[in-house]
Design a protein around this nucleic acid. Structure first.
Lengths: 213, 213
DNA sequence: GTCTATATTAGGATAGAC
DNA sequence: GTCTATCCTAATATAGAC
């Protein structure tokens, strides 16, 4: 693997583990067994590494989020979809760890992150509308906006939130929890016939919980 | 006002405005027109100021959150209660801006913040249970946990979330939005007779929105 | 209690040899 | 491309006079 690529990989790893602001250029270089001078040959510094990692995240998450807008998901696929979204966010969790700070320092990224949020909302709305058309859920047009906002916020902050309470939860469980939490936002809107699907989610989630302990 | 107290006030102001990590001891001293040496006479540095600000936040928020556990609120008072909670969080928003970072640096505060989260959940549950007993909402016992989690997350992250999208929203509107967003989590559970209360919240919120633009 | 002046350090960054 | 050596800066922290 090329040094340039290794720098990106190592940075991502360290940023995720220790928090971007605590990682120094020297630490990245040491971890890779190269000299700090060499790192500076490839990148002008941390400031140059971060946008490039963000590029990747933006690209990957965008393509994930666009899928359900273009082709409606089956009811069951929603769970899988949510899991994949959480997985992607987890892979670049350093961005979310200190969101305000990061976006304050990089004005460009702020606009781009906002657009990602808009896309999350759009996707959430598309999913709700599709479920409504299939008469799986029953909800007023007006309430959809609020619901989509709650879903978007859950997608954005759930793992952060959960880790504040239980810092040692294994990551795949965090994702299951997140997916279930989103489902529980939809739960009260499920029609009687599809109620059992939500119960299935609940059971599935309980199963995942047991496996851990 | 004593210098010591002025340091705390000024720090809070600057932390909230610029983000705690960007504020230096020198900047605090300059803002107050005292020397950095003087600041160090009163506090060992930023590391000593932060826990003291957290103390105050913890104390104030705890007493706000305990109220509805001890005496159930009337339906209308819930809105006011939520507003007050958001107001308090807003007053110490620097804590929330870079939560993970802050709690990573101060291990002691991590535990204390977790306890605050637990109290938020407890309060949310108490409110739901009380509304259920008065037959204002209708919800399964099992679903209350998820609902309380969603309320807690909204209380914790709503203003952050909202500011990521619209950074220039005036603060009192942020609080109204937050309160309304929490209400919308309860909305689908309202019984037919109390449905109009939620509509009232909606109208009230729209009113607040108009005043701004 | 408050000031000025100065010490210390960590991290970011570059020059120049190989 | 990579290394070593070195510089620069911003921020923390202290000493000692008033």
């Amino acid at each position: 693997m090329k040094t340039r690529e290794r720098i990106l990989q190592t940075s991502l790893l360290l940023f995720n583990e220790e928090g971007e602001s605590h990682v120094t250029t020297l630490e990245i270089a040491n971890e890779m067994n190269i000299s700090p001078g060499n790192l500076y040959y490839h990148f002008r510094g941390k400031e140059a590494i971060i946008p490039e990692l963000f590029d990747r995240f933006e690209h990957e998450l965008t393509s994930i989020l666009k899928a359900p807008i273009e082709n409606p998901l089956s009811l069951e696929d929603n769970w899988f979809f949510l899991y994949v979204v959480f997985e992607e966010i987890h892979e670049y969790r350093f961005i979310y760890r200190n969101l305000s700070d990061l976006l304050q320092r990089f004005e460009v990224l702020h606009r781009r992150f906002s657009r990602l949020l808009d896309l999350k909302r759009l996707t959430a709305k598309a999913i709700c509308t599709s479920l409504m058309q299939k008469q799986i859920i029953n909800i007023d047009e007006e309430e959809i906006t609020q619901l989509a906002d709650s879903i978007t916020m859950t997608i954005t902050f759930w793992m952060n939130f959960q880790q504040l309470r239980t810092s040692e939860t294994p990551s795949h469980l965090l994702m299951h929890q997140g997916a279930f939490q989103v489902m529980s936002l939809l739960a009260p809107y499920f029609t009687e016939q599809h109620r059992e699907f939500y119960d299935g989610c609940h059971a599935f989630y309980q199963e995942a919980l047991k496996e851990v302990s």
